[in-house]
Design a protein around this nucleic acid. Structure first.
Length: 426
RNA sequence: GGAGAGGUGGCUGAGUGGCUGAAAGCGCUCCCCUGCUAAGGGAGUAUGGGCUGAUACCCCAUCGAGGGUUCGAAUCCCUCCCUCUCCGCCA
C-alpha cells in the first residue's frame, strides 16, 4: 500500500510514476474523494467531541444529585447527526481503501522505462553457454530418455501442468533443494523456517497477491484458505503486527515450500516440461531491513541467489525489470535468467525485489530504531534462491552429454548417494 | 468433534456502566544520589488518525474482530475469530 501522505501531498507525481508501469491513476478523482473524507471526518469528530464532553457532564451532574434531563436531551439530538456522519465517513473510507489496495507500488527512479520483457535492461552476464557440437535435447527428452520423468501419469491423475519425477531425477531434485538450503543458511545467514502452505486472504493481501490477482491462486473451502503461490507470503506475514528491535535487524528468513499457481492466462505458454507447473518447489529468501539499507540489501540478496547458479556452473544473466514488467508490490526487481540450450535463450529462474515499505505498511511490520524511539515501517525484500524445478531443468540441459547422460555438479555430491552422472548406469 | 475457561499496553496483571487510554509490578529511557559493585530516589514510557510550521498543544478512535443496547461501554447483549485445559480421534 502506498503512503496515504505521499498520495495526498503530491497525487500528480504519483500518477506520473505509476504511468511508467502502465497504471492509470486518476489523481483528480482521488483528490476529490480525499477532500470529501477530510470534511466529513472533521465534522464527525467534532460531533463526537461534543457528545463526549456532554456525556461526561451528565455523569458529573448525576453524582452531585442534580437533574441531567436537559443535558441528556441535548446529547440525544447530537446522536442522530452523529450517526449519519459516521455512516457517511465509513462509506467514503471503504471507497478509499478499496481504491488504495488496488494501487501498485511506486517505481524506483532507476527502473528502466518499457512495456514488456523486451525492454528489460541486462546488467551483467556470468558464464559461457557451452558450445555443443551436437543438437541438445530438452529436459523432457532427457528425462524420458532414462525413464525418470512421467508427464502422462501426472496428467492422468491431476491434469496438465503437473509432473512425476522418479529415481535419480527425484534425488537430484532433492539434492538441489538441500544444497540451496545449506548455502543460504550457512553462508548467507538466513534462518530456516517451516511454514504453513495454506494461508488466509488477509495474509495474501499483506503481500499484494490479493485483491487484484485472485485468478492466479488456488482457493480451498470456499476461500477460507488459499494454497501459497510462494513462501514469500507466510514468511513476510511472520512480521505482521510486530515491532522488531534494532538488534534484530537485518531480519533474514528462508523457507523451502511447494508453490501453487493457477497459471490462468498462460494458456499455450511453456506447456512442455517443468518450466511452468501448477505445483513447484522453491527456496525463498525474505528479508526486512532499515529503510536506508534496502537498496544495498537488494544487491546483496541478488548475489545470494547468483551464488547458487555459480556453484552449479550454470550460465546466467541479471536483468533489471522495466516498468511495464514489474510486479504489483515491487519498487525494483532484478530477474536472474539461466541459459537453456534447448531454447537457446535465457529463462527466468529467480526474481529479487525490493518492496520498500509497501508490504510493511499492509502487514504493519515495524522496527524501533533505538530504545524509547517511535516505531518506523521496515522495508521488505524477497528473492527466489532458487526455483528448484527450473534449476533442475537448467542442470539437465546445460550439463548434458552427447549420449544424453547428465554430469551432476560436484557441489551436489553430499546428497547424490554416489551418483555422478545421470544415465551412466545404462 | 464434545465440555469448560479465557483473550486488557513491551511483559505480568487489576479493572462489571461515567474523571480509566487504562491501577500495580516488571522491563525500558532520562535525571539525581552513591568514590567501584549492589542498592536507593525522581520523571517519563501504546498505536493510528485529524489539526498544526511542529515529532508542542488540542481533538477522535483503539482493552481479540464486527455489530447492538445506552446520553455514555474495557465493563451489558449478539455474532465471529483465536488461545488454553480435559475427553474423543489421529500422523
Amino acid at each position: 500500500m502506498l503512503d496515504p501522505k505521499v498520495l495526498r501531498a503530491d497525487p500528480r507525481a504519483v500518477a506520473e510514476n505509476l504511468a511508467r508501469r502502465g497504471f492509470v491513476f486518476d489523481a483528480a478523482a482521488y483528490a476529490e474523494l480525499e477532500a470529501e473524507r477530510k470534511a466529513v471526518q472533521s465534522a464527525a469528530e467534532s460531533l463526537q467531541a461534543q457528545r463526549n464532553t456532554l456525556s461526561r457532564r451528565i455523569g458529573e451532574a448525576r453524582q452531585q444529585g442534580e437533574n441531567a434531563a436537559e443535558l441528556m436531551a441535548q446529547v440525544s439530538e447530537l446522536g442522530d447527526q452523529l450517526k449519519s456522519r459516521q455512516a457517511a465517513l465509513a462509506s467514503i473510507r471503504q471507497k478509499l481503501d478499496a481504491w488504495l489496495v488496488g494501487v501498485p507500488n511506486l517505481l524506483d527512479s532507476e527502473v528502466p522505462d518499457g512495456k514488456d520483457p523486451k525492454d528489460n535492461l541486462e546488467l551483467r552476464r556470468w558464464g559461457e553457454p557451452a558450445d555443443l557440437d551436437f543438437e541438445p535435447l530438452d529436459h523432457v527428452q532427457l528425462g524420458e530418455r532414462w525413464g525418470l520423468i512421467d508427464t502422462q501419469q501426472a496428467a492422468a491423475m491431476s491434469g496438465a501442468r503437473f509432473s512425476v519425477l522418479q529415481g535419480e531425477l527425484a534425488l537430484l531434485h532433492r539434492a538441489l533443494t538441500q544444497f540451496m538450503l545449506d548455502v543460504h543458511t550457512r553462508r548467507h545467514g538466513y534462518q530456516e523456517c517451516y511454514v504453513p502452505y495454506l494461508v488466509n486472504a488477509a495474509s495474501l493481501e499483506g503481500t499484494g497477491q490479493l485483491p487484484k490477482f485472485r485468478e492466479d491462486l488456488f482457493a480451498l473451502d470456499g476461500e477460507e484458505h488459499f494454497l501459497i503461490p510462494t513462501a514469500e507470503v507466510p514468511l513476510t506475514n511472520l512480521l505482521r503486527d510486530t515491532i522488531l528491535e534494532a538488534p534484530d535487524l537485518p531480519w533474514k528468513k528462508l523457507a523451502h515450500t511447494p508453490c501453487f499457481r493457477a497459471e490462468a492466462g498462460s494458456y499455450g505458454m511453456d506447456t512442455r516440461g517443468l518450466i511452468r507447473q501448477h505445483q513447484f518447489e522453491k527456496v525463498e529468501l525474505v528479508l526486512a531491513v532499515r529503510p536506508e539499507e534496502s537498496e544495498a540489501a537488494l544487491e546483496e540478496l541478488t548475489l545470494h541467489a547468483e551464488a547458487i547458479l555459480k556453484e552449479l556452473g550454470l550460465p546466467y544473466r541479471v536483468v533489471s525489470l522495466c516498468g511495464g514488467d514489474m510486479g504489483f508490490a515491487a519498487a525494483r526487481t532484478y530477474d536472474l535468467e539461466v541459459w537453456l540450450p534447448s531454447q537457446k535463450t535465457y529463462r527466468e529462474i529467480s526474481s529479487c525485489s525490493n518492496f520498500r515499505d509497501f508490504q510493511a505498511r499492509r502487514v504493519k511490520a515495524r522496527f524501533r530504531p533505538g530504545p524509547g524511539e517511535a516505531p518506523q515501517l521496515l522495508h521488505t525484500l524477497n528473492g527466489s534462491g532458487l526455483a528448484v524445478g527450473r534449476t533442475l531443468v537448467a542442470v539437465l540441459e546445460n550439463r548434458q552429454c552427447e549420449d544424453g547422460s547428465v554430469r551432476i555438479p560436484e557441489c551436489l555430491e553430499p546428497w547424490m548417494d554416489g551418483v555422478t552422472r545421470l544415465g551412466a548406469a545404462e
